[in-house]
Computed example of a mutant assay.
Amino acid sequence: MNAQPSLDDFKALDLPPARPSRLRRNLLIAAVPLALALGGGYVWVTGGRYVATDDAYVKQDRVTVMPQVSGQIASVSVAENQTVKAGDPLFTIDDSAYRATVAADEARLQSARLDVEKLKAAYAQAVSEASTARDALATAETQDERVQSLRKSGVVAQSDADTSALALQQARGAVAAADSQVLSAKAALAGNPEIPTDSHPEVLEAQAALNVAQLNLAHTVVTAPQDGVATQTSRLLKGQYVTPSTAVVALMATGNTWIEANFKETDLEHMLDGQPVSVRFDGYPGRSFEGRLELIGAGTGSEFALIPAQNASGNWVKVVQRVPVRVDLAGADLPPVRAGMSASVDVDTGRSRGLPAPVGRALAAIGIGGSPAAAAGQDAK
Rank of each mutant, 00 (worst) to 15 (best):
P16L: 00
R19W: 08
S21A: 03
S21R: 13
S21Y: 09
R22G: 12
L23Y: 08
N26Q: 15
L28Q: 13
A31H: 06
G41C: 15
V43K: 00
V45N: 01
T46L: 03
D55R: 13
V63R: 01
V65T: 09
P67A: 06
Q68A: 06
S70M: 08
A74K: 15
V78D: 00
T83Q: 15
A86D: 09
G87R: 09
P89R: 10
T101G: 09
E106D: 14
R108S: 14
L114V: 06
K118W: 09
K118I: 13
A121D: 06
A124R: 14
V127E: 14
A130T: 12
A130S: 15
D135W: 05
E141L: 13
V155K: 12
T163D: 14
Q169E: 10
A174T: 06
A174L: 06
A177Q: 12
A177R: 14
L183W: 12
S184Y: 08
K186A: 07
G191Y: 13
I195P: 04
D198V: 09
E202L: 13
A208G: 06
L210W: 10
L217G: 05
A218M: 03
T223A: 12
Q226T: 11
G228N: 01
G228P: 00
A230S: 01
A230D: 02
Q232P: 03
T233C: 11
L236N: 04
G239W: 11
L251N: 00
N256E: 03
E260Y: 01
N262I: 01
L268H: 13
D273H: 13
G274R: 11
G274K: 06
P276F: 10
V277Q: 10
V277C: 11
R287C: 09
I296L: 10
A298K: 10
G299V: 11
E303L: 06
A305P: 05
I307M: 03
P308W: 06
P308Y: 01
V319N: 07
R322H: 14
G331D: 01
D333N: 08
R338E: 10
A339Y: 00
S342K: 14
G354A: 09
G360T: 14
A364Y: 00
I366C: 02
S371D: 04
S371H: 04
A374W: 07
Q378S: 07
D379P: 02
K381G: 11
